[in-house]
Design a protein around this nucleic acid. Structure first.
Lengths: 109, 109
DNA sequence: ATTTATTATCGTAATATTGCGATATATAAA
DNA sequence: TTTATATATCGCAATATTACGATAATAAAT
């Protein structure tokens, strides 16, 4: 075995897990923070910023893109990414209501 | 290679990633939801609930425990877990301020 | 002490992730 | 069109995760 049995769980559970997975690597957390500070990003900046190789950064960016969190466009020679604010906000809600719902029910002792 | 280079990132980034990793599997999301509904849980219930083997459930519980989200105690024959509310709330804040901070800065276009 | 019921750990196979060098692709400038 | 620069993809090795059967450990009841 070794593959997650996603079919055992409902779509909400899988969606939350899918997004959490993107945040489950410190490089991706750092990348998102950096992009938000710059309101755009250049991959080569991230190489200097993080100390990871260019290929690695590119892969992490692809993971973030997969869940719809990035919008990108070329500006001159550079690819400028920015965070998709609508998607970001909707994921914040998703996490927040997950946390809130469980927090409200769980034992107080 | 293959090991995450956690030393390149700060403690906040690593902590967020560590917690996100726990939420990054639908089984663990489902387990947390179930425990909160029951205000306690029995491992064998989770086997029926999820369709995963007992050993697998036990491993997932261990992952959740590792980040301090579970308090457990024996009640009669059964191990009753419940969610550590203090820890839960602090993680909710962690995620919420992460989302909020980035959301506030990121491009509005 | 033995039995019964429940959870934890061990060992292992399958799969996924991580990281990087090499290379391909794409854009702008010369 | 060639060159320079930036990003994406490929291929591979190392490591981590996932899942489960088998077995050990734990606790209550007999």
């Amino acid at each position: 075995m070794g593959a997650s049995k996603t079919q055992l769980f409902d779509e909400q559970q899988n969606e939350l897990a899918r997004v959490a997975k993107v945040l489950a690597h410190p490089a991706r957390v750092a990348i998102l923070q950096y992009i938000s500070r710059q309101d755009a990003c250049i991959c080569s900046d991230l190489v200097g910023e993080t100390g990871l190789a260019q290929a690695t950064i590119s892969q992490h960016l692809a993971e973030i893109k997969k869940v719809g969190l990035l919008k990108g466009s070329f500006e001159g020679k550079n690819l400028c990414y920015c965070i998709d604010k609508e998607r970001w906000d909707s994921l914040q809600s998703l996490f927040n209501s997950f946390f809130t719902r469980i927090g409200a029910q769980c034992c107080t002792s």
